[in-house]
Design a protein around this nucleic acid. Structure first.
Lengths: 217, 217
DNA sequence: AAATGATTTTAGGTTCAACTAAATATCAAT
DNA sequence: ATTGATATTTAGTTGAACCTAAAATCATTT
């Protein structure tokens, strides 16, 4: 049983905060696969290190320092994803797991070298923005494909990289960054869709439609 | 205090065996910076895992499985070193520490992708041979520059990557792979040398002369 | 406002890789 | 062969990060 790194705790908290959810003990425990009590132990230590604010029974919130760490990790993660695609011919559904490991062993020099080699990219292969060195994260507004109605015409801005199988499936439908999608029908109950990409129509499950983020054109 | 990984134990043992030294408890302890007793504890566990042969008071020796692991790590280390130089414009004195971290988080796929991107290189930037996927390590014979006498003309095959400062210094003297060196004088007691590279003569300390490996031309 | 149910924390225990100090084995020199 | 020096192992301890079970707190409903 391997132990969870500080960076992984910070990431998990950040991920919840970004989703607008409160970083509660139980949410973190299920995210990280440890017991609730272990989370309580650990967040006390991280609080002592100044990475988060903790008040008993109230969940946690990252401090500025904690957010900075999270953005640093995210930056390295997304730079690696881009790098794997551009320099090592990875497909977009393979990069996430690899980047998940590499992000933790990346020095400032290496981060800089990758950034330079890529020509200072602003986004990764799934359309996620790459935080800048000084911790700015330009947040484009986009909506889940699942939130759209029949007749809407949209452009793909980003596809969640959490699930490799979904990415692979999306690619097989012709979904890529900047693809144009027309929503043909929306099923009333489960929210699945029929969409048109190029000349072809496809059925899209709710789960997939929740992973594709778009803007109206 | 961070704990030492299995891979680091195996590397340390391998390094001693390659140098022809016996992998004793104390040698490992000083290499890894832990107490002798900790080594005894750990080698018992590694022995149980089948990575090494251990008999009380007799030091250890890697099993076939242990050697295979060591060569895998070495392969990933050297591929990364080469990659950093070729794709990310690293200088040869910077790659070692970076590769030391990356080697531990490199999947078989990534190893393969790097190998392919580099066109299946056989050596790294310091002239070290890269073990093949199936664990073969073609061992060229070479001698330390320090072992040569005035008048010898040699070609640089490899420079030890252990000490970044030495690599940097060597480079500043014009030492690179395949450089031609003429030994002009050898100091009787400390073994330091005066050498000629190109049109210039340089003084070379014993420590540096021990890090440069050459063959007669 | 009290009760109930869910969440969180506390208390105490386990494991793992370190540690120190004491005991034991090996080796080299007489 | 004995001895003394050196190296190694054993025995017992610590600290970190996990665990379970019980106690405390919070939130919601009546």
């Amino acid at each position: 049983m391997s132990t969870i790194s500080t960076e992984d705790y910070i990431k998990a908290i950040y991920k919840l905060e970004v989703r607008g959810e409160k970083a509660t003990t139980s949410a973190l425990a299920s995210q990280l696969g440890v017991a609730d009590a272990s989370i309580t132990d650990m967040i006390k230590k991280l609080s002592d290190k100044g990475l988060l604010h903790y008040e008993r029974y109230q969940g946690v919130e990252l401090t500025q320092q904690g957010v900075k760490m999270a953005l640093g990790i995210l930056r390295r993660h997304r730079l690696w994803e881009m790098f794997l695609v551009e320099f090592l011919a990875y497909s977009w559904d393979k990069v996430h797991d690899e980047a998940e490991r590499l992000e933790h062993v990346t020095s400032a020099e290496l981060e800089h070298a990758i950034d330079t080699a890529l020509g200072h990219p602003t986004g990764d292969p799934h359309g996620d923005e790459i935080p800048t060195v000084d911790g700015k994260l330009p947040n484009r507004s986009c909506t889940a494909l699942a939130a759209h109605e029949a007749g809407d015409v949209v452009r793909v801005l980003r596809v969640s990289d959490e699930d490799s199988a979904i990415l692979q499936h999306a690619a097989s439908l012709g979904v890529a960054l900047n693809s144009r999608i027309t929503v043909k029908q929306k099923m009333p109950f489960d929210g699945s869709l029929t969409i048109k990409i190029g000349k072809k129509e496809h059925f899209v499950s709710r789960q997939v439609a929740d992973s594709i983020f778009v803007e109206r054109v």
